[in-house]
Amino acid sequence: MRALRSHEAGGPETLTLDEVEAPEPGPGEVRIAVKAAAINYPDLLIIQDLYQMKPPRPFAPGGEVSGVVDKLGDGVTGLSVGDRVIAVPGFGGLSERLVVNAKAAIPLPEGVSFSMGASLLLTYATAIHALKDRGRIAVGQEVLVLGAAGGVGLAAIELAQAYGARVVAAVSSADKARVAGEAGADDCVIYPRGALDKHGSKALAGQFKAAASGEGFDIILDPVGGDYAEPALRSLGWQGRYLVVGFPAGIPKLPLNLALLKEAEVSGVFWGAFAMRDPKAYAGQVRELFALLGEGKIAPKVTGTYPLEKGGEAIAALATRKVTGKLVVTMD
């Protein structure tokens, strides 16, 4: 089988397309013939040894996949060869065959494409965990979403709308504002790209505050970090919840006196650890996401597809922070 693998720490250009033996499933495992693998920011980090997970090399990146079960390990029940499934292995997805624990293979409903299935869990599960568990979202609340045209951002817009919130999207360009608006954002703020000085930070905080209809936002979902974090935190309302999701713009240093003055919460969102620690709650969220998908309230936006041999180009494109929606590598 073919696999796009990392042999040394480095950027997407270091990945090589290798011919390797297909893995065999052990007891309680299944092998998936991968049809599609979505690309996410952790794929860029993991090949540079910058992610919290550091697999032994060589390994293939690719943290979420869809495909067809093509072999069962001993003792597996509830799944059959030929079943359509999705899974979040963390890595290994940029390969034609992948072995996962049978409990991690989730049946993919008929009518949902492999590309859409591969694009669902990491972004939408992160967003639903953030908004419901950490943000305690409620009807009529106001939500500010940073990086709103990315995978997590678009998922958060759709989910917040489904839960009856007013959503303001923060993006870095007019094109991204259009994408966020098409996803259902009620208003958009366009922030400048690059570093912000003190004046720029204050001006952006003013933009965010002006976009809130009341005294500030109830929830801010931040998958961006960097210089955008402090201006966003300043726009949080009384007893608001600031949700820390990721740092493609850098790890910020927040003035915690703002949290005190607003009696606010700054909450981390580590969906992967949550899913491992509370699989029952995770399973319930997956069911809810499939229900919302069936009702047409959410729909992963796949904006680009790449063949396996060009998977490194997909990761490189994501690194530019110019991508909207989800990029997917397909095996066919």
Rank of each mutant, 00 (worst) to 15 (best):
17 L>K: 10
18 D>V: 14
19 E>S: 10
19 E>P: 09
20 V>D: 12
20 V>I: 15
20 V>S: 12
21 E>D: 13
21 E>K: 12
22 A>K: 13
22 A>L: 07
24 E>G: 04
26 G>S: 14
26 G>M: 10
28 G>E: 09
29 E>I: 06
32 I>M: 07
32 I>V: 15
32 I>W: 04
33 A>T: 03
33 A>H: 05
33 A>K: 09
34 V>Y: 04
34 V>D: 04
36 A>T: 08
38 A>Q: 00
39 I>E: 09
39 I>H: 08
40 N>M: 11
40 N>D: 13
41 Y>G: 00
41 Y>M: 07
42 P>A: 12
44 L>A: 15
44 L>C: 03
46 I>D: 05
47 I>K: 06
48 Q>N: 12
48 Q>G: 10
48 Q>H: 15
49 D>M: 02
49 D>T: 02
49 D>W: 01
50 L>R: 15
52 Q>V: 13
53 M>P: 05
54 K>V: 03
54 K>G: 02
56 P>T: 11
56 P>F: 06
56 P>A: 12
56 P>K: 11
57 R>G: 05
57 R>S: 04
57 R>L: 04
60 A>Y: 14
60 A>P: 09
61 P>L: 11
61 P>G: 05
61 P>D: 05
62 G>I: 06
62 G>P: 09
62 G>S: 12
63 G>P: 01
65 V>P: 04
65 V>L: 03
66 S>W: 08
66 S>Y: 06
67 G>F: 07
67 G>P: 08
68 V>T: 08
68 V>F: 00
69 V>T: 00
69 V>M: 05
69 V>E: 06
71 K>T: 09
75 G>K: 06
76 V>Q: 00
77 T>K: 15
77 T>D: 14
78 G>I: 10
78 G>V: 10
79 L>P: 15
80 S>V: 10
81 V>H: 02
81 V>R: 06
81 V>M: 03
82 G>F: 00
82 G>D: 02
82 G>A: 02
82 G>C: 07
